[in-house]
Amino acid sequence: MLDSLLWGPTELGLMYALMALGVYITFRILDFPDLTVDGSFTTGAGIAAYMITHGSSPWVASIAAFAGGMAAGACTGLLHTKGKINGLLSGILMMIALYSINLRIMGRPNISLIKEETIFTGVAVLAIMPVIVIAIKVLLDVYLHTDQGLSLRATGDNARMIRSFGANTDITKIIGISLSNGLVALSGALIAQQSGFADISMGIGMIVIGLASVIIGEAVFGAKSVIRATLAVVLGSILYRVIVAIALRIEWLDTSDLKLITALIVIIALVFPSVRKHMKQKANARKRSAQLLSQSSGPALTKGGAPQ
């Protein structure tokens, strides 16, 4: 029981956490909904599987997967910034293009890794994954506090401002989307090695799982600072797997319902906070109006600021 509801999901969650961190970079930091993820996840798995079956070290293969994802992300970034294509559409175009590219990389729709040596050969997933995930999380935190990282964050926060201070926001966007897809591809490479195969369709719906992890993580664990937010995303990825494991225990639900459940989780997580905020604002406004009405002399206007 504990095994299937806690340790299993934790293992999976940690491996998908890198993908979720990637989605966090585009979705939250750059404010760019990047659908490349569905393709680049498979790209990572495909590159790693191909290289491992052709005698590469699994570590080298994983790093190559990361690089492959970065290249895919850079293409999306270029389409969006230099080609001036709408953000969502650039991601979709790249995702579709990657389907064919991934088939080319893999040579066939499915590569088995059962008999190959992977980074998980002879080591427990739970022994190695926490180290990898924490190391990458810390590196990402550090990066996001460097001069370049700050300009990346400002690009999503106020692009006009950071341009007026001399940062090229086209370049920062490309760097961010590229880094994001590198992490997604690395996650795909790890999943392929752990599950023993790479499959052409393994990336479908990945963006929604990434979003679910980010949103659940931030809602439950908070996102006050970058360090806190990246931790929340990692924990959110684990929590998402726990929720799925619990949901699948419900008798009338099937494994095939997984994507529906994921979509529902994201919808609830997106709608709930905005509804709650709206209610809160309304209640506050009502309270304040009553307060002002009860003061016969009228309010002293102390709060300034622009209406914009």
């Binding site: 506090h145 460097t146 001069d147 370049q148 700050l150 300009s151 950071i162 201070f165 001399g166 940062a167």
Partner: peptide
């Protein structure tokens, strides 16, 4: 920190 780096290249130094 971002204003401080006006017009300079932004690399991997802490902001």
């Amino acid at each position: 920190a971002m204003a401080y780096k006006r017009g300079q290249s932004r690399m991997f130094q802490f902001g």
